[in-house]
Simulated assay, not measured.
Amino acid sequence: MSRSLRRGALAATAVVFSIASLAACGAGNDAQTLQIKPDNAAVTKGEIMVQNALVITKGEKDKKGPGAAAVSATVFNSGSEPQTLDGVTLPGGKAKVVLKASEGSGKVTVPAGGSVVLGGQGNASAAIEGAEALEDGNVQKVVFQLSRTGSVALDAFVVPGDGMYAGYGPTVAPAAPSPSGSPSGSPSGAPSGSPSGAVSGSPAGSPSGNAGSSPSGSASHAAGH
């Protein structure tokens, strides 16, 4: 066999071996192709797993005004006992996270064998106060404090509350003066002015005039007879 043919055979053998190696890596339970991780931050510690953690800021249409943001995540509890989410912190800044249960004013509870969602309509919320330093596109460390597991930390992306995240970002509370001003002005003026004038003027004048003239006229007519 010539030298050129020998080189060609070696090259072909190397290509076949490479393809076989890749096929072997892609097979089995430990295949790299099966180890797909979610794009958003996720971490597991003991019985607690936190998935899809994000720090969501205001959307483009709500950029004006004071900074506000929210933590969105799903917290799973694989244990046999419920745990409470006692706090969420953002180390490295002055931002404060305020937790609120989906119903009532109690703590956010992660049920045994269940999960709790932070963010979105009808779910628990983790609103961030003083979020001016947060910038979209950055990575922010977030620490979840569980009653039994303790601190569970991860790095979450900071994203704007637009598109698929529009319903999970910070919400703006309605202004307080509007509801209280409208009801108090209207009812108090109408009832007090109208009924009092009609009742005191008409009935009081009518009976007194008829009663004074009619009986006296009848009495003088009877005396003349």
Rank of each mutant, 00 (worst) to 15 (best):
F17S: 09
Y165N: 08
A131Q: 07
D30I: 03
S180I: 14
G93K: 08
A68N: 12
G130I: 14
T109V: 08
V43F: 00
L99R: 07
V55P: 01
E129W: 14
V172A: 11
Q35T: 08
I36K: 10
V117D: 08
P91S: 07
G181T: 13
V88R: 00
E135H: 05
Q145V: 09
K64A: 15
S220V: 10
A190N: 00
S151D: 12
A133F: 02
V172N: 08
M49Y: 02
G130W: 01
I56L: 04
A112F: 01
V158G: 09
Q121D: 12
V159T: 06
P66I: 07
A31R: 06
A101C: 00
L154T: 13
S213N: 01
K64R: 11
L34F: 07
A131P: 01
S186V: 08
Q121L: 15
N77C: 14
T57C: 03
G114C: 11
C25N: 13
S102M: 03
A112K: 14
V172W: 13
V117S: 05
S206T: 14
S180Y: 15
G106W: 01
K100A: 14
S220K: 06
T149H: 00
T171V: 10
D30G: 00
P195Y: 02
A11P: 01
G8I: 04
F144T: 13
R148F: 02
S202W: 02
G28E: 05
R6C: 03
A204T: 10
A127E: 03
S213V: 11
G26S: 00
T109E: 07
A41S: 07
G106H: 04
G113R: 10
G59W: 05
G65A: 11
G92D: 04
V117K: 09
G65D: 11
A211S: 14
Y165I: 04
T44H: 11
I48Y: 02
A69W: 07
